[in-house]
Design a protein around this nucleic acid. Structure first.
Length: 407
RNA sequence: CUGGGUGUGGCGCAGUUGGUAGCGCGCGACUUUUGGGAAGUCGAGGCCGCUGGUUCAAGUCCAGUCACCCAGACCA
């Protein structure tokens, strides 16, 4: 991408409304634009990061046989009424709207009901199971208090996966499988070492669930963990009973702030029962389908990663999700000529700061702010060595590398 | 939702006891500069969140309303 061709501009100062690193830096660097509290646009660079995260998730899920689909945002109240979740008393974060004919609709805050209803068209026999289907979808939740940049929004991108099984045992082993896949996803996006499966409340679904919590100062959750972090539990389930279940004593636990980046539930028949999703077994006996659901807040994850890696100069992206690998800056006529050639050969790899009339200092500052893994500078100085200068964003270390290595 | 705070050019802010707005950055043009956010000259840009009220006169006072921020509560 050539910066001269982008409508986006970096900002020296973020709006004072952005009080977190992720909100302020993503705004300044031109990744996001705020519409309203908890409602953001993703600009070209931000979209690329989102897409890169999605690709990693997609790869990992497809690898274990999950199928991707895309469901509707507008929700028919009918299946939700069968589980009691259309009522504002039960679920108080609905955005609702209506048809011109007067009928009521909801904007999906999640998709357990519609996907269970959908599966009724396709699940008849034990031969049809198991099924696992996921989507990347914009969810709407009328949060009383949106905050922390893109960490808690009213409109956000979520990956939601649902699995359907013939027995609780099959659900159990699938759940364990997803747990491992999630670890792998969080490793690949660069936060594996500070992200842990965490015992949490099952909410209205079940006694316990697992959250994936990333240790983070601005995280909204408080977690307790032991030394090697093999046991992590959310404050909301910090009771004597739970500590006994897990076999830990209070004095063995430390506390930290954390952000929930994923959550997995064994729903059992919580939804399949009221929505009447059944199958016939080998003996032609009708049974209720067992179900699990597994979420990752994709846009939140982007914010968490920004927050985790950012330094005082700006963003620092892990290479796996960076919008581009290289930030290209040319100095002098010869430098520009060489940079143009380099860019032409492989435009996908470079964010090329070819803006005219800027001093290099500004370009360097913007490169630090935007946070691509490596900055490449081409000038008379480097060309004299038939080289380019490569600076690692994270360590700040510079090296000359032969120009020929890039062709 | 409860408590506190804030709304003034794109962004950050200042506006004394009421007398129809100013600074910095950014933006545009030109000149000189050019390996870490340059300098000069000229210039554009605001019915002060919105509505109503008090007053000869409201950015300033009063009431209402909306939005945003923080803390808490909530969070499938």
């Amino acid at each position: 991408m050539k910066m001269s061709q982008s409508f986006v501009k970096t900002l020296r100062q973020a709006s004072s409304e952005e009080t977190t690193k992720n909100g302020a830096l993503l705004t300044r660097a031109g990744y996001i634009h705020k519409e309203m509290a908890g409602i953001y646009d993703f600009l070209p660079l931000g979209l690329k990061v989102l897409e890169n995260i999605k690709s990693i998730i997609r790869e990992e899920l497809n690898q274990i046989g999950c199928e991707e689909l895309l469901m509707s945002t507008l929700q028919n109240p009918e299946p939700w009424e069968k589980t009691g979740r259309f009522s504002n008393q039960q679920v108080d974060i609905w955005f609702k709207t209506e048809l011109s004919s007067g009928g009521e609709l909801g904007l999906a805050p999640t998709h357990e009901e519609p996907i269970t209803a959908l599966m009724k068209s396709y699940v008849k026999s034990y031969k049809d199971l198991p099924i696992s289907a996921y989507q990347f979808q914009t969810k709407f939740r009328n949060e009383k208090r949106a905050k922390s940049g893109i960490l808690r929004g009213r409109e956000f991108l979520m990956k939601d996966l649902y699995s359907f099984h013939t027995t609780p045992e099959e659900l159990e082993s699938y759940y364990d499988k997803i747990m491992k896949v999630y670890q792998s996803i969080f490793n690949r996006v660069g936060i594996g070492d500070i992200t842990f499966p965490c015992f949490a409340s099952g909410g209205i679904f079940s006694k316990y669930s697992h959250e994936f919590q990333t240790l983070l100062d601005v995280g909204e959750d408080t977690v307790y963990y032991n030394q090697d972090k093999s046991i992590v539990l959310n404050k909301e389930v910090y009771t004597e009973e739970v500590l006994n279940d897990l076999g830990v004593k209070p004095e063995e636990l430390q506390t930290a702030n954390a952000a929930e980046v994923g959550n997995i539930f064994k729903l059992q028949t919580k939804f399949t029962d009221p929505l009447d999703l059944k199958f016939s077994d080998e003996n032609n006996v009708e049974k209720v389908v067992y179900m699990g659901c597994y979420g990752i807040g994709v846009s939140r994850l982007m914010g968490v990663i920004a927050e985790v890696y950012a330094d005082d100069k700006g963003l620092v992206w892990p290479e796996s999700i960076a919008p581009f690998k290289y930030h290209l800056i040319a100095i002098g006529d010869e430098g520009i000529k060489t940079a143009n050639e380099l860019y032409r050969k492989n435009p996908e790899s470079f964010l090329y700061d070819n803006r005219e009339g800027l001093r290099v200092g500004e370009k360097f500052a913007d490169a630090d702010l935007i946070g691509l893994p490596q900055r490449i500078v081409i000038s008379d100085k480097t060309l004299a060595e038939k080289s380019v200068e490569i600076t690692d964003r994270k360590t700040g270390k510079s090296d000359l590398q032969l120009l020929s290595d890039f062709s």
